[in-house]
Design a protein around this nucleic acid. Structure first.
Length: 270
DNA sequence: ACATATTCCTGGGGGC
DNA sequence: TGCCCCCAGGAATATG
């Protein structure tokens, strides 16, 4: 499940190779739901020069110098992979971008929840305006403030809401709550000032630590070279149902909340 | 103003 | 070996 650390890892790798490069050719192998089809997309993109690859929340922004952009959302199984000229497209490969200097990037997606979307500068601003603050570019105080309202919401629901704080998904919501010693099903209104500050701090900590490991490969996530992230082994609750809590040796519980598997320690998370 | 359910989709794992 | 069923879930949407 690509969340902020995974998407940022991919962004950095894409940016390093693609900044300043012009799109020369596009090969579409498979179109479908939420995937741009046909000549319109190709015409708009080919010949356009990328100023760089940026990120907002879990959205990758292939920013062109003229203000236009391609938005890319990986959802669960989307991948951007650098490939060689002899690469043979597989059944899940969808769109190949060929840049100058023969740099080739494949957009691939098993489950087809992800999307690429071409936008002009106006649409770009509109789409990006709906996201809350970036946790790694915002003070703990302000993040803690975001966890105040609306008070009647459940903590996990608020953490998953991209308009409250951007970039957190199921894995890091559970992990941040465990680190902070807070049950994810509690209401925001029950959090003390200290609780909010601690939770905000642990959100930042877990995202930074995962980023340092190039993310978590719990299921399908790989970076642009097809390599897995190293943070899976460092998870404390996610995917550890019935295994012992690493703080207090109590078995980790898993429930369904907000439609997601939610993992927590019934002893050390209050 | 909050909740939950449904929808999209495929591969992988458990049960038999 | 091979079914069948369930599960993983981001986020938009519908409904309570």
């Amino acid at each position: 499940m690509p969340e902020l650390p995974e998407v940022e890892t991919i962004r950095r790798q894409l940016h390093a190779k693609l900044a300043g490069k012009t799109v020369r050719e596009i090969f579409i192998y498979k179109t479908g739901r939420e995937v741009p089809a046909g000549e319109g997309f190709v015409k708009k993109v080919v010949g356009n020069r990328l100023s760089g690859v940026e990120r907002r929340a879990k959205v990758l922004i292939f920013q062109f110098e003229n203000g236009e952009a391609i938005l890319g959302h990986l959802k669960m199984t989307g991948k951007f992979l650098f490939v060689n000229t002899d690469y043979i497209p597989g059944k899940h490969d969808r769109i190949l971008f060929v840049f100058e200097d023969a740099i080739r990037v494949m957009w691939s997606d098993i489950r087809q929840f992800g999307y690429l979307k071409f936008v002009d500068s106006v649409e770009l601003t509109e789409v990006l305006s709906k996201y809350g603050p970036e946790p790694l570019e915002t003070s703990i105080e302000e993040l803690a403030q975001r966890l105040m309202a609306p008070k009647t919401r459940k903590i996990k629901t608020a953490l998953l809401d991209q308009a409250t704080i951007a970039g957190i998904g199921n894995i890091y919501a559970d992990e941040a709550c465990h680190r902070a010693g807070i049950r994810p099903m509690r209401k925001l209104s029950t959090l003390s000032r200290d609780d909010r500050a601690r939770l905000a701090e642990e959100i930042v900590n877990v995202l930074n630590e995962s980023l340092a490991q190039k993310g978590t490969s719990a299921n399908d996530y790989v970076d642009t070279d097809g390599s897995k992230g190293g943070f899976l082994a460092l998870l404390k609750v996610y995917g550890r149902e019935n295994q012992l809590c690493l703080k207090c040796s109590t078995p980790i519980k898993k429930i369904v909340q907000a439609g997601r598997g939610t993992h927590y320690c019934p002893n050390c998370q209050k």
